[in-house]
Design a protein around this nucleic acid. Structure first.
Length: 507
RNA sequence: GUGGCUGUAGCUCAGUCGGUUAGAGCGUCGGUCUGUGGCACCGAAGGUCGCGGGUUCGAAUCUCGUCAGCCACCCCA
């Protein structure tokens, strides 16, 4: 896919004529003129570099000549002076058919699965008060420090396009006091925004499917959300993606681990990467995430969290593994997973795919037992994940299959036939469950058949003057090329009914 | 934010040492076939060579800047 698709919203006015129009006029049109004329044109072109005046006169001349051939042009040119070139903003993309069909399929699969797990959809605004993310995600995280799309609204409030969806979900939960009704299982699907340099699997506007489960402290909930994510992958046959899990402890044991890490890394301080040196005091956990080659050895010898967990965290993690085993879910304990958000506690997990590039995490999540409280709610344990739709669809194998033929291509030959057929098409669309296509371009019959093929239509309905006179229409099976004539009496609805009846059983 | 690579037709890409009118395949439209598709043949339309400046008699080609895309770093979905 790839290159720039730049929409040229180009209005040509007198000032623009000097650029494009003059080139076109002297280029294309001169090709039809004689050789002498051409050299004259070239000389004029060279002269033009000399003085602006000549250039303008030349351009005006061209406008006049073009206007003679196309009277509307002068009026259009007078309307607009500016040249506007607009393309989709960096790191965003347009979604077009047939790719959009894959997205729709994925989204309904995700929804269906979430509903099957007992989760209900939540939709929240695309922007929130900036403060929500600063407090929710954490001030020292990369997201808050440098990746947020923040703006001031006209009331002077600081707003931010959501960079993640957990904090907004919690906000909505608290605002509507849903926790008073007991545990909540919610899912969401849609866009989120991060101001980053785009690369493979990373965009400024991306889409995420995620679930959040509130109110259950036990490992059952952790494993439920993991199961949901894995099952979605499984449905698409993405079995080479692996679930990696870890525990990063809670308020009791994390400080101890932090100390242990500091003791370990301090002696290496001089040799660590610049980034890791900075992280040493602020957030030593994140050093474990580093890919810098000079950090590799110190990280490999670092103590793991699994040795430092307090007894209750250790027990929780053991239960998580137990449930995963009981469900037959394959996983890998990876002590290096730490995750980028501050709100995680205990279980964290990622699903990574070997077929993605450097951004190989297709899904990430974990438990966040303190977030609800820190946003002003009652103490509420919670666990959830986010899954990147772009990344998922990059590796999903549902690409090439050609859909089976279905529906109708209405083919009219001539004005009268078209006028007769249009209401029939409308009636078919009202009553049938299959697509009905029609080309309004007045193309010859062969071209309309090509369009039918492209549309993967199953039947062609052909009407020309002969059929009109005979009150018939032709139904052609585009698979076996057999066709038959059926009577077309009555109004459009009756004709549509006759058509549907004629193909019934055949399809 | 840093670095590397790349911008030529709707798409994929050629374009020699800087030289006259920038090409191909696919796609689109028309024709061969006044009314029958996937094939074939013929023809046509379609280009500010990303944009702006510089060098030069002359720039798609060299140079600087800029924008965009891709990839990597940081980090993450």
């Amino acid at each position: 896919m790839g290159r720039v698709h730049r929409a040229r919203l180009r209005s040509r006015g007198p000032s623009a004529v000097r650029g494009r129009e003059s080139l076109r006029a002297s280029g294309r049109r001169s090709a039809r003129r004689s050789g002498d004329d051409r050299t004259a044109a070239r000389r004029r072109r060279q002269d033009r570099q000399g003085t602006e005046k000549v250039a303008e006169r030349d351009a005006d001349d061209r406008v006049r000549r073009r206007s003679e051939r196309d009277p509307g042009r002068a009026a259009r040119a007078a309307l607009a002076e500016t040249i506007i070139e607009i393309s989709a903003p960096r790191g965003t993309q347009d979604l077009l058919p047939p790719e959009s069909r894959r997205w729709a399929r994925f989204e309904s699969a995700a929804r269906e699965l979430a509903e099957r797990f007992g989760y209900g959809e939540i939709r929240t605004p695309m922007f929130e008060a900036t403060e929500l993310f600063v407090r929710g995600v954490g001030e020292t995280t990369d997201i808050v420090e440098k990746e947020m799309y923040t703006f001031q609204d006209k009331g002077g409030r600081s707003m931010t396009l959501r960079p993640e969806w957990t904090a907004p979900t919690v906000r909505a939960l608290l605002q509507h006091n849903l926790l008073a009704q007991g545990p909540q299982r919610l899912y969401y699907i849609g866009p989120f925004f991060r101001y980053e340099r785009p690369q493979a699997g990373r965009y400024r506007q991306a889409n995420q499917f995620g679930v959040e489960c509130f109110g259950y402290p036990g490992a059952e909930a952790d494993v439920e959300v993991m199961h949901l994510a894995v099952e979605l992958l499984h449905k698409y046959g993405l079995d080479d993606a692996t679930l990696r899990i870890n525990s990063i402890g809670d308020a009791e044991c994390r400080p101890h681990y932090r100390e242990a890490l500091l003791r370990h890394f301090r002696p290496f301080a001089g040799r660590l990467s610049e980034d890791s040196r900075r992280r040493l005091e602020r957030n030593p956990l994140r050093i474990l995430d580093s890919k810098a080659p000079e950090d590799r050895d110190p990280i490999a010898s670092a103590p793991t969290f699994l040795d430092a967990l307090c007894s209750s965290c250790e027990e929780h993690f053991a239960e998580v593994r137990g449930y995963l085993d009981a469900l037959g879910l394959r996983y890998l304990v990876d002590p290096r997973i730490v995750r980028g958000f501050d709100y995680y506690t205990r279980t964290v997990f990622e699903i990574v795919s070997p077929s993605l590039g450097a951004q190989n995490a297709i899904c990430g999540g974990g438990r966040y037992d303190n977030l609800v409280e820190s946003l002003g709610g009652p103490p509420t344990p919670a666990v959830g994940f986010g899954l990147g739709e772009e990344r998922f669809l990059m590796i999903a194998p549902d690409r090439d299959s050609e859909p089976p033929r279905s529906g109708f291509q209405a083919i009219a030959l001539g004005e009268a036939a078209r006028a007769w057929l249009v209401p029939v098409v409308g009636a078919l669309r009202e009553s049938g469950g299959t697509p009905v296509f029609m080309d309004f371009g007045g193309r010859r019959i062969a071209a309309q058949f090509k369009i039918a093929d492209r549309n993967r239509a199953r039947y062609a309905l052909i009407v020309g003057d002969d059929e009109l006179a005979a009150r018939q229409l032709i139904v052609r099976d585009l698979d076996d090329r057999r066709e038959r004539r059926i009577a077309s009496h009555g109004d459009a609805k009756a004709v549509a009914g006759a058509v549907l009846q004629a193909v019934e059983g055949a399809a």
